[in-house]
């Protein structure tokens, strides 16, 4: 195994040379791209990548251009994890048979998929790949909505969000269901490493990606991807909105090792009210009407409760 890339600080990290290229067709200010850069730049090893149908895929490999400087495959909406698992199986087979073209260059296998392609349509393929124990990393670009097709609800969409399939209206406050807890589901697969990350906390993210690359077996990364188009905020505010998410604890940063050891990896010095996070986004605008205000209180209570739960999981973890 190649030595892990040393990244002590941001200045040192900035010497990385991207293997993901510009002039792709992602929206200005898209967090997907920031996440992809941080993942790929966490290693200098060769990469075998896949992407599920979604914003990332339809923006980075539109004939006649590719934005990828590493081997990359897209098959369909649901099977990005299995695609890269197949490639990983071939790597193992050819290694055993002594037929690798560059045997001294062990690669990293990474699948990128949106929340729709992970929480919903790709769930079975993800689960199967993790059950089989392939040495791959699945990175969910979690923008909590089907953004590529214009803003439909996914099972990652949080309660109270206005989407095109659960629009807020005179008698509805939008999405009625809370976000699915993928972190626990993936931890329950017995995966050696499961982590939630956010691109604004780059150091936390790099540490987790490198941990994920270092372990043997399937790794699940749930990356918050603030979506300027569907969350409805100004394109320049991607990092600012991401900061609101992590500092309000709406998107807590933690990891689960071997399905049993929970570590909270970021504790904000000043926890800000959930209200501030919601207020920054157009998708929650209607919650600030008098008849919906109670939902903001419920949001705060839910986030508080989840934070207590996470701390309890951490305390009760085997050390």
């Amino acid at each position: 195994m190649a030595e892990q890339k040393k990244i002590k600080n941001l200045k040192e990290f900035s010497k990385s040379v991207d293997r993901f290229e510009g002039s792709n067709l992602l929206c200005p200010g898209c967090a997907h791209s920031i996440i992809v850069r941080e993942v790929l730049n966490a290693t200098n090893d060769d990469l075998v990548l896949s992407a599920a149908t979604g914003c990332l895929e339809v923006s980075t490999a539109v004939y006649p251009y590719t934005s990828w400087d590493a081997s990359w495959i897209h098959i369909g909406f649901e099977n990005a994890t299995t695609a890269v698992a197949g490639a990983e199986a071939m790597y193992k087979a050819l290694k055993r048979k002594g037929r690798l073209l560059q045997p001294d260059r062990p690669p990293k296998f990474v699948a990128f998929a949106g929340d729709g392609a992970t929480y919903d349509i790709g769930f079975q393929w993800l689960s199967g790949t993790f059950e089989r124990g392939h040495d791959v990393m699945h990175v969910t670009l979690d923008n909590e909505v089907y953004a590529n097709t214009g803003g439909q609800s996914s099972s990652s969409t949080p309660i109270g969000s206005s989407t095109t399939t659960a629009p807020a209206g005179r008698v509805s406050y939008g999405e009625k269901r809370v976000k699915k807890d993928m972190m626990s589901i993936m931890a329950a697969h017995g995966a050696p490493y499961v982590a939630q990350v956010a691109p604004n906390k780059w150091k936390d993210m790099i540490k987790k990606i490198q941990h994920g690359f270092a372990v043997e077996g399937p790794v699940y990364i749930n990356a918050m991807s603030a979506c300027t188009t569907e969350w409805r905020f100004d394109v320049a505010d991607t990092i600012a909105v991401s900061d609101l998410a992590t500092d309000s604890l709406v998107f807590p940063l933690y990891e689960i090792i071997d399905g049993e050891t929970w570590n909270i990896t970021y504790r904000p010095k000043n926890v800000i009210p959930v209200r501030d996070y919601l207020a920054a986004q157009g998708r929650f605008k209607h919650l600030f009407k008098p008849e919906n205000e109670y939902l903001i209180d419920e949001w705060q209570q839910r986030i508080d409760k989840e934070w207590v739960r996470l701390q309890r999981m951490e305390e009760n973890s085997p050390r």
Binding site: L10, K11, F13, S14, K15, D18, F20, E21, G22, N24, L26, P28, G29, C30, A31, H32, S33, I34, R37, E38, P199, N200, W202, T238, I239
Partner: peptide, 15 residues
């Protein structure tokens, strides 16, 4: 500080 480099979504900050 390289904040612009790390948070640029378009690989357009030359460092």
């Amino acid at each position: 500080c390289q904040f612009c480099w790390i948070y640029c979504p378009d690989m357009s900050i030359i460092s």
